[in-house]
Amino acid sequence: MLFTYPIAATTNNWVSSTIIEILRTALAALQSGVQPPDFHNAVPQIYKVEFQRGRKFSDLYSAFIDACRPLDPNQQELVLTALFDQNRFPEIFDASTRCPGIALILPAVHQAAQNLFAYAFEKLSDLRTPGSTETVRARYHQLVHAHIESGCCPFCGLEIIEAPDPDLVDPDLDHYLAASKYPFAGANLRNLTAMGTTCNRSYKGAQDILLDDVNQRVDCMDPYGEEHVSLSLEGTALLPGGGSGPSWVINFDPDMKSRNWRRIFKMEKRLRLNLLERQYQTWLSHCISYAAAHNIDLSEREGALEAVRKFKNTCKYETFPTVARLKTSFFELIEAALANAESADKVHNFLVEAA
């Protein structure tokens, strides 16, 4: 990910944590051979009024209990393990941390959990943290939008996420760990990420962020962590010959940990086809216009070098973070080529001809 979400946005996570604790208590009761508590009786007093606004909670909880009731102790333990492990954030992003699903071995329980937490996710747009006038989801979006760079989707850095306003459509709230496989994390704010519509609906969907393309566990980026992916074009051949444009090389750092994100969101291809190949000539045109506006003579190599150096420093002010980083890197390559005796004349002639 190009940047991350603020952990403060997950503070009001009481909807998820309350339900998880109630389910743990209920499963422990079943294991002890006693009747699990009624849902609303098990809700802490501070949240009772809000949970009562969710009319389906009690029935969905009862359906989950009914699905678990006939299980033997070992199977009930599997459910408890899944309930715990699917909410082990941030450890879950380490490939060595288990994160079992139960869809294949206990499909009825899995479906009941999916129904319960899907409803809880839906109610994030309705329930309010006690003492707040905002819904949990509205407050989440306010905190996220105030933090993320340029109000852009952190997964691509190319798409604006709608601002939190009642007259605007809420941005997509993606289940980073797919709710279809990890339903117990379905309403956990730590597992929810505001995401651009294209990234969410065209690329991420229900793909499993924890598995690679051969279904092996891999380390993956924590959307609420501190590690960001940096981009560069080092290794790109600016003038490979044959009349073609640059031969693009896109570098991601860290490399290994970002691979699954890049695969799922098709980052290399999207950046190469939608941005670099489509925009680099426009970037060159802007640099040439900048030189003309500042009376810098491109006909001399030193003038071209001056123009590129100065224009490069303006690239970081691009609205879209991904454009800013790749555009800056592109002109760093041109600057280095102009400063290199072996490549200077070729690149300088290219700029003069473009002008």
Rank of each mutant, 00 (worst) to 15 (best):
Met1Lys: 03
Thr4Arg: 13
Thr4Trp: 08
Thr4His: 10
Tyr5Val: 02
Pro6Asn: 04
Ala8Phe: 13
Ala9Asn: 01
Asn12Phe: 02
Asn13Asp: 05
Thr18Ile: 13
Thr18Val: 13
Leu30Gln: 12
Leu30Glu: 08
Pro36Glu: 08
Pro37Ile: 03
Phe39Arg: 02
Asn41Ala: 10
Lys48Ser: 01
Phe51Met: 01
Phe51Thr: 01
Phe51Gly: 01
Lys56Phe: 14
Leu60Met: 05
Asp66Cys: 01
Cys68Lys: 04
Arg69Val: 04
Val79Trp: 08
Asp85Phe: 11
Ile92Lys: 10
Phe93Glu: 04
Arg98Asn: 12
Gly101Arg: 11
Gly101Ile: 12
Ile105Leu: 06
Ala108Ser: 07
Ala108Asn: 11
Ala112Leu: 02
Leu116Gly: 05
Phe117Gly: 01
Phe117Glu: 00
Ala118Thr: 15
Ala120Trp: 08
Glu122Arg: 03
Lys123Asn: 04
Lys123Gln: 13
Asp126Leu: 05
Leu127Ser: 04
Leu127His: 09
Gly131Phe: 14
Thr133Glu: 07
Gln142Leu: 14
Leu143Ile: 15
His145Ser: 09
Ser150Ile: 03
Cys156His: 07
Gly157Asn: 08
Ile161Arg: 05
Ile161Phe: 03
Pro171Phe: 09
Ala187Cys: 14
Met195Tyr: 01
Thr197Gly: 00
Gly205Ile: 05
Ala206Asp: 10
Val214Thr: 13
Val218Tyr: 00
Cys220Trp: 02
Pro223Gly: 08
Glu226Thr: 15
His228Arg: 11
Ser232Glu: 14
Pro240Trp: 15
Gly241His: 10
Gly243Trp: 15
Ser244Glu: 15
Pro246Gln: 11
Ser247Arg: 14
Ser258Arg: 02
Trp261Lys: 04
Ile264Gly: 03
Ile264Thr: 06
Phe265Leu: 15
Glu268Arg: 15
Lys269Cys: 03
Leu271Val: 12
Gln279Cys: 07
Trp283Tyr: 05
Trp283Val: 06
Ser285Pro: 00
His286Val: 07
Cys287Trp: 11
Ile296Glu: 10
Ile296Phe: 08
Leu298Arg: 14
Gly303Ala: 08
Ala307Leu: 10
Phe311Val: 00
Thr319Arg: 10
Leu326Gln: 09
Leu326Lys: 02
Glu332Ile: 09
Glu332Ala: 06
Ala339Gln: 14
Ala341Asn: 08
Glu342Thr: 14
Ala354His: 11
Ala354Cys: 04
Ala355Leu: 00
